[in-house]
Simulated assay, not measured.
Amino acid sequence: MATQATFKSIKAVVPLLDRVLVQRFKAETKTAAGIFLPTSATQSPLPEATVIAVGPGAPDKNGNVIPTQVKAGDRVLLPGWGGNPIKVGDEEYHLFKDAEILAKIQE
């Protein structure tokens, strides 16, 4: 299991290379009709997230920096695995490599 880092401010976390800092969408704990859902029904992480910050990109074999494919504010689709958790107060964020992000969600 990955170790979870804890920080006082999300601004303290600056992704390096091709890393992307995201915050997963939270599962609804209540239905539209007002019925509260048990935690067992909402435990699996949602695959959608908002990009908080991105690194400048990673160098290719020739030393040219390849920028990340997403930018802060983008909505993305994440795999069900991977990422490194980061805790800021009660909020949880994750760091993913740019290549691990499955898709950018267009609105």
Score class of each variant (00 low, 15 high):
residue 17 L to A: 15
residue 64 N to D: 06
residue 24 R to M: 00
residue 4 Q to M: 05
residue 66 I to T: 15
residue 5 A to F: 12
residue 49 A to W: 08
residue 44 S to A: 14
residue 16 L to W: 12
residue 94 H to A: 09
residue 30 K to L: 09
residue 65 V to S: 04
residue 79 P to T: 03
residue 49 A to P: 00
residue 54 V to D: 06
residue 84 N to Y: 10
residue 56 P to I: 09
residue 48 E to C: 03
residue 94 H to Q: 07
residue 87 K to C: 05
residue 72 A to G: 10
residue 20 V to M: 01
residue 84 N to P: 01
residue 17 L to Y: 13
residue 106 Q to G: 04
residue 8 K to T: 05
residue 38 P to N: 06
residue 7 F to A: 14
residue 52 I to Q: 03
residue 14 V to T: 15
residue 104 K to I: 05
residue 93 Y to T: 00
residue 1 M to K: 11
residue 71 K to Q: 12
residue 43 Q to P: 04
residue 11 K to Y: 14
residue 76 V to E: 02
residue 95 L to C: 07
residue 106 Q to F: 00
residue 4 Q to L: 02
residue 94 H to P: 00
residue 5 A to L: 05
residue 33 A to S: 15
residue 76 V to K: 00
residue 44 S to M: 07
residue 4 Q to P: 00
residue 54 V to K: 04
residue 48 E to F: 10
residue 91 E to M: 06
residue 31 T to R: 07
residue 41 A to E: 13
residue 2 A to T: 11
residue 70 V to H: 02
residue 104 K to H: 04
residue 36 F to T: 13
residue 7 F to E: 14
residue 95 L to V: 09
residue 16 L to A: 15
residue 55 G to Y: 05
residue 100 E to R: 09
residue 70 V to E: 04
residue 81 W to R: 11
residue 16 L to T: 13
residue 43 Q to V: 13
residue 93 Y to M: 02
residue 4 Q to E: 15
residue 16 L to Y: 05
residue 84 N to S: 11
residue 22 V to F: 11
residue 76 V to D: 02
residue 88 V to K: 05
residue 52 I to W: 10
residue 59 P to Q: 15
residue 47 P to R: 14
residue 94 H to Y: 11
residue 83 G to L: 01
residue 80 G to Q: 07
residue 40 S to L: 03
residue 98 D to E: 10
residue 28 E to K: 07
residue 101 I to M: 02
residue 40 S to M: 08
residue 98 D to N: 14
residue 89 G to W: 07
residue 73 G to H: 01
residue 94 H to D: 08
residue 85 P to G: 05
residue 56 P to Y: 08
residue 9 S to G: 01
residue 60 D to Q: 11
residue 20 V to P: 01
residue 89 G to L: 04
residue 67 P to C: 04
residue 12 A to Y: 15
residue 31 T to K: 12
residue 104 K to A: 03
residue 13 V to Y: 15
residue 45 P to Y: 14
residue 77 L to V: 02
residue 26 K to V: 13
residue 45 P to S: 08
residue 54 V to M: 10
residue 84 N to K: 06
residue 42 T to E: 00
residue 13 V to E: 06
residue 39 T to I: 10
residue 10 I to H: 09
residue 46 L to E: 13
residue 11 K to A: 12
residue 55 G to D: 05
residue 31 T to S: 10
residue 90 D to S: 10
residue 106 Q to D: 12
residue 99 A to W: 06
residue 51 V to A: 13
residue 73 G to P: 00
residue 103 A to D: 05
residue 103 A to L: 03
